[in-house]
């Protein structure tokens, strides 16, 4: 095992993430003995990212129920086959989740002092960033293809929902890319906190899962 040469960036307390919801553990007994209490609350970023995930899920749930109702109540629904580039972008997005997970693990190990260099994990973050951009570009190509086929936003409810769901998702992916850039800048300045990394990674994986859900929905319902 390599010896630690550099001083690692600011390290969070190792068990910071182990208490995801533990404000309740801070209870001070009636006799007021502070020594029995644990000295920290979990970082709010962890709960906040679940709040974001929940809100985005609700939004897509609303869109999904709209799709079901709209398709069920009408006779004008015309199906079309999805542009094949979507399967490519799906693979890209899954790959980006894998690279982000590698990056996250390496950075975590680095922060705990098991590893020496920060460049290596940063590289994986750049790969993730690149794959994310490829995904968005691929989605853009898919919109161009549909447009070439004469399928616009208002052509048919099926195309309306296609654009609606994919564009909304792509905008949220762009938000995730912003998160990764934020993490990169913090990493390079040596002020990254682990819960920020974990939160960004969770959001990114959520985007991944959400996309797979949307793809299946579009495949089955469009």
């Amino acid at each position: 095992m390599a010896t630690t040469i550099h001083e690692p960036p600011q390290i969070d307390h190792p068990h910071t993430d182990d208490f995801s919801n533990g404000g309740g553990r801070n209870l001070i007994p009636a006799d007021g003995d502070l020594r029995l209490t644990i000295d920290h609350s979990p970082p709010p970023t962890s709960s906040a990212i679940w709040v974001v995930v929940f809100a985005v899920s609700m939004m897509f749930a609303a869109f999904t129920s709209a799709l079901f109702v709209r398709k069920g109540s009408s006779l004008d629904w015309q199906s079309f086959s999805l542009p094949s580039i979507l399967y490519f972008t799906t693979l890209v997005l899954i790959a980006s989740s894998v690279t982000l997970e590698i990056a996250r693990r390496r950075i975590t190990a680095f922060m705990r002092g098991f590893q020496t260099g920060v460049e290596n994990p940063a590289r994986w973050l750049y790969v993730t960033l690149f794959l994310g951009l490829v995904f968005v570009a691929g989605q853009y190509v898919a919109w161009l293809q549909l447009r070439a086929e004469g399928l616009y936003l208002a052509t048919n409810p099926s195309s309306s929902f296609f654009y609606l769901l994919t564009v909304t998702h792509a905008l949220h992916v762009l938000g995730g890319l912003g998160g990764i850039i934020y993490i990169l800048s913090k990493l390079h300045r040596g002020i990254l906190r682990r819960n920020q990394l974990v939160a960004s990674a969770r959001y990114w994986h959520f985007m991944d899962v959400l996309w797979i859900y949307l793809l299946l929905l579009l495949l089955m319902k469009l």
């Binding site: 001070i28 979990p42 970023t45």
Partner: peptide, 22 residues
């Protein structure tokens, strides 16, 4: 209001001071 909730929920869950159980 969603941005408001983003702050209210973590404040209540995570920023309670010592001894402030739910």
């Amino acid at each position: 209001q969603l941005l408001g909730s983003l702050n209210f929920i973590p404040t209540t869950l995570d920023l309670r001071t010592k001894g402030m159980s739910l």
